[in-house]
Design a binder for these strands. Structure first.
Lengths: 212, 212
DNA sequence: TATTACAGACCGACCAGTCGGTACGATGAA
DNA sequence: TTCATCGTACCGACTGGTCGGTCTGTAATA
């Protein structure tokens, strides 16, 4: 049993506790008690409670960017890229739901230097999505009436908010929810020109959405 | 000067500080110093720091529900109601941006009894929006392919997330952003049957969205 | 005189972080 | 092979300081 290195054990324990009670709702003592170690063990592995919080942030956002970038690289059209990025998020979500909660809930408590390191990556993620939207608009697959930056934030909001309500034991999987999001987002953006491709990627397009 | 009752002064000060540094980033001492009063003054007006947090929550969510309900009552069709609710949120947002930030950031730190009181009202808000979507689907103005409850959460996410990025001094007002959201949401939901009414409410529908 | 509204010294609990110490495997000289 | 040495990983009592909340006192008002 108990073969995992201590650092990993502390990270996992802290993550679980932060997720349940928030960063300030959990003391270092609680963490070390739960992880069956000691203050010494903790501070041997982390410079501070703050650094621990940072590491939780970083592992998630790094992974999220990586997956989104993979999705972007794998496909070549804006429509398919958009779908792939939305899909990639479901994978990230399945693995990192607790991280995400902590990420969006506790990031204000990161010290300044950590904060800005995280912000750089956060912007990177947003930028990638915004690029896809802009490319789609340029090609005429997406409507030009809506500004790309606001649309991007609308999509990010829709996705990110799931951490507040998604229930692993609920009736829908994250993947099914993402499919619905794809449906909504594509319908909100697509032009007549883009429809043929959208039909292939989202089921409800095949039932022609212009008739009820 | 300084004619406001102390309780109000404390509320406003605390709100501002919570907004900047988070509930746990601000001590009661800091609050009373900034509000130019004392611990005595504070605990004369509030039973605990916790109750103060609750009051900030309650004043916002109560107002938000009221405005959404008004919007609902004032209009009679799902499409116009949806637009009105989205519009109502901008007003709430202008007045209560700080409250909203605190609301979504710190609600986990409310004690259980306060927590559930707030949850009741939060559900009320969601339910109202979900009703509108369902009615729209029943009447054939909104597409039936997307489940009403998930669509509701998508919209709520889109709206609520604005508290993370909206900048009062930015290039767009909250009202302009809401107009874009209306555009996106209506395009994602509307059926051919609903279009004539949507045209009246959102500009970009008049440039027929089926041609580019 | 009684009550309300506030002041501010004070208290006990708790908390992040420190520090002197230990357990133990690796290394290397005899 | 044996034993001294050293470095790493970890332990847990302790500290300095902060925090939410209390309590006694007082000035103003009614």
């Amino acid at each position: 049993m108990k073969k995992k290195p201590l650092k990993e054990r502390i990270l996992e324990t802290a993550l679980r506790l932060f997720n349940e009670k928030g960063f300030h709702g959990v003391s270092v003592e609680q963490i070390v008690d739960t992880a069956q170690t000691s203050k010494g063990g903790f501070y041997h592995n982390f410079k501070s409670k703050d650094e621990l919080l940072y590491q939780i942030h970083d592992v998630f956002i790094t992974y999220a960017i990586e997956k989104a970038q993979e999705a972007y690289d794998e496909y070549k059209t804006p429509i398919s890229r958009l779908c792939a990025i939305l899909h990639s998020f479901t994978k990230v979500f399945d693995v990192y739901q607790s991280h995400i909660t902590v990420f969006y809930q506790e990031s204000i408590y990161l010290s300044n230097s950590f904060q800005s390191a995280i912000n750089v990556k956060r912007d990177q993620y947003r930028y990638l999505l915004e690029q896809v939207i802009q490319e789609g608009q340029k090609l005429g697959d997406f409507r030009k009436e809506v500004p790309a930056n606001i649309t991007t934030m609308a999509i990010i909001g829709m996705i990110n908010w799931t951490y507040k309500w998604f229930d692993q034991k609920g009736p829908l999987t994250m993947e099914e929810i993402a499919d619905i999001f794809k449906d909504l987002i594509l319908h909100s953006l697509i032009t007549e020109q883009g429809k043929p491709e959208a039909v292939k990627l989202v089921k409800s397009f095949s039932r022609n959405s212009t008739t009820r």
